[in-house]
């Protein structure tokens, strides 16, 4: 099946986390988490960021924790 038909390209899988295996998803590292937020502060869906389901769960949890501590915004006006 060609990439065009599936609508997904393998290049989407390439992410910050795939390129550096030592990175740990942690709420104490807001600089890393910012890469997975839109410019309005929303969490980017996995189908767009190309994260695995497990990574997306970890990112979601970490972002929500970081928001509690005002390390990341809930919304950006």
């Amino acid at each position: 099946m060609s990439e065009e038909k599936t609508g997904r390209s393998s290049k989407n899988r390439a992410s910050l986390l795939a390129s550096d295996k030592t990175l740990v998803i942690d709420y104490k590292n807001p600089q890393l988490l910012k890469a997975f937020l839109t410019d309005r502060g929303k969490i980017v869906p996995a189908r767009i960021s190309g994260l695995t389901a497990r990574q997306q769960r970890q990112i979601t949890k970490a972002v929500k924790r970081a928001r509690m501590l005002a390390l990341l915004p809930y919304t950006v006006a």
Binding site: G7, N12, T38, R47, I48, S49, G50
Partner: peptide
Amino acid sequence: DRDRFSSDDDDD
């Protein structure tokens, strides 16, 4: 990063 996400949007 923003460029990457927005270009993916266009694909979808």
